[in-house]
Design a protein around this nucleic acid. Sequence first.
DNA 1: CTGGGGAAGGGGCCC
DNA 2: AGGGCCCCTTCCCCA
Length: 518
Amino acid sequence: MSIKSCLESLAESQGAEVKSVIIFFVFFRATFRFLFSGMEISSHQFHLLQQLNEQRRQDLFCDCNILVEGKVFKAHRNVLFASSGYFKMLLSQSSKETSQSTTATFQAFSPDTFTVILDFVYSGKLSLTGQNVIEVMSAASYLQMTDVISVCKTFIKSSLDISEKEKDRYFSLSDKDVSSNGVDRSCVYGGGWRAESSPPHSHSSPDPGTCMMGGNTWSNFNYYPASQRNAQQQLSKHEQRQDSVKKSRHLGLQQPSDIPHYKSSKLEDRAAEPAGHPAPPEEQVHIDTEVEAPHVGYQYGQGSEGMPRGLAVSQQEHESPRPSGKSKSSKADEQYGNMPSILGVMGNWAEDDLARMRFKCPFCSHVVKRKADLKRHLRCHTGERPYPCEACGKRFSRLDHLSSHFRTIHQACKPICRKCKRHVTELTGQVVQEGTRRYRLCNECLAEAGIDSIRIDLEAEAPLEFPQDGDKDSRWHYGEDNRSDVEIVEDGSTDLVIQQVDDSEDEADEKDVKPNIR
DNA sequence: CTGGGGAAGGGGCCC
DNA sequence: AGGGCCCCTTCCCCA
């Protein structure tokens, strides 16, 4: 928040007496700038905000009480007005009605979250952690603080990026230096002060080249691991990838590490144009690298001390390539575990209003009834795909999509001949396996294709199986002892026709049985 | 160019 | 709250 915008907001929200002070200030500021030939004392803005923050701490001149889940926060209307579109709307109404102190009540977020928000308002520093980022973003969305939202989005994206990057590293490198690259994921995003005279970033008027602290820019932001790409690189890489993804769509060639970026454009697109709240370009968001003391609830696993959240998750996967339990789905849980309800309650809303309230997506205008649905919906923005198909490597955002994919592609559940589309039974048709793909062909089409000559005993070539409950992370076992609940219904050991191919050569496979496979 | 079909993906909702 | 099912839309490929 710049002094200029702050003063403008003050003038807007307060009466003539404040205006006179502002006029004096503006005059003083202009004179000062004149005397120093355009120079500006950059620390003044900082000191002014510091003073306001000090006043807040000492409960001096606080004229607004914010009640969050029973905890009372004191603040200055002027500051809130200037910082939040929500408070702007609220206070502009209440200020007309009364000059007494205003009280606002929230149940939309926790006191801890509001502390982060309020600290940002009064200091320009946003203390984000992997644990609080979603809730802070939701709160900022509710309070219409778009610059906070965009920083949160950046934080989440970088979180996912690091996670995926480290996953790549796991598959390609030894994990010996994973922890050495780690840095504390909790950090402070500063929307602070810069020496130049251009006004700092404001929620109502995003200003390119602002929101900076410590002189660190996004591009040289050393908060990332050295391998971390910046937002621009992601975008261009994503654009390059689009074609390859399209080409490989039916070939099962998508690589796990690619998938999150596949959807990232959606996030960027939407982030670039939230309705009524233009977000600043990500490359213009400058992030402070100073690291605060560890935040509550932000803990790293053993051996991953000081490691980013995503790294910590990856590290766990490293230690246990087939982790039991829910590590993959719990990754999403960790990401969204703190999802607040968006049931913002303001003042005297009626009970039936509350009943009609829904969970609103902070990225788009989509509203859902259930928190779980919002959690699921958010993955389409973040691009997170925690459910990999271990048969072909394709990743999915939802388990049911993965199941559907597996049944369709890797099991031959449909009793329909892939070639002639006729209904086939165990007697009239057979299952053909081609790489990791399975489908059915009727006996006639089999004869035409001439691939029934390659009969392989199922005892030697066990079918792909969907994992059982309780072992969700070790999906896709190739013929292990226990059959899963999802049986390949008609996979009699005598009627499975398998074309023996190397799974890694799906592309070549396409040519082999081209009439049936796209 | 167009229509059909397969696969993916998103939302609603039930269990 | 998560899993799973159903329905729908979109995208892509092919005839």
